[in-house]
């Protein structure tokens, strides 16, 4: 503070001081932006990722809800899911043909297995066997649903530890 007061008495150093301060502030701002960019890059998963376990299908024809049979989902462990498929009005869909696939958008590889819907459990619920994830991170799981002559897809996001 004292040195600041001294600087004020002489007009020439005063503008120099202002430039220095502005420079420092500018540099700090640049650093802050760089820091924020680094943070973003480190967590390059989309910040607004929808992690819902119930979603409408892309065209809104069906609603799909999934429940893993182990929670939290452990990596490297074969397990099954139960998915429930309803129409837009919430009525269970009994005769759907359902396809399953998964992917890691940042890694260019998919699931280590080929999961399948193996059984209809009633009340719109289907058993999906053969689910397995071989690493932590951002996963997507896609279901294709064909029922009553209609086709639609749904994509779930998951962040696995």
């Amino acid at each position: 503070m004292r040195s600041v007061m001294t600087a004020q008495t002489a007009p020439a150093p005063r503008s120099l001081f202002r430039w220095i301060v502005m420079g420092v502030v500018g540099m700090l701002l640049v650093l802050l932006v760089a820091f924020a960019a680094m943070l973003y890059r480190m967590n390059y998963v989309p910040a607004d990722l929808d992690l819902s376990t119930t979603l409408p299908t892309a065209q809104g024809l069906f609603h799909v809800h999934y429940t893993p049979n182990q929670e939290p989902i452990a990596i490297n462990k074969l397990h099954s899911w139960t998915i429930r498929v309803t129409d837009a009005n919430g009525e269970p869909i009994a005769d759907a043909v359902i396809g399953v696939d998964g992917d890691m958008p940042q890694h260019g590889h998919g699931l280590p297995t080929r999961p399948q819907v193996t059984r209809y459990l009633g009340n719109g619920e289907y058993l999906v066997e053969g689910m397995k994830f071989q690493m932590g991170g951002w996963w997507v799981v896609d279901f294709t649903i064909d029922a009553a002559g209609q086709h639609d897809t749904v994509r779930f996001n998951m962040l696995l530890k």
Binding site: R18, V21, L28, L29
Partner: peptide
């Protein structure tokens, strides 16, 4: 005088925010 104080406050604020962010990130 007043401008100078404002500048100093701004610098202090930026430094504090930066340090805080760094600590939080760590």
């Amino acid at each position: 005088m007043r401008t100078k104080r404002l500048w100093l406050a701004a610098v202090a604020l930026v430094v504090l925010v930066a340090l805080g962010a760094l600590a939080w990130q760590r």
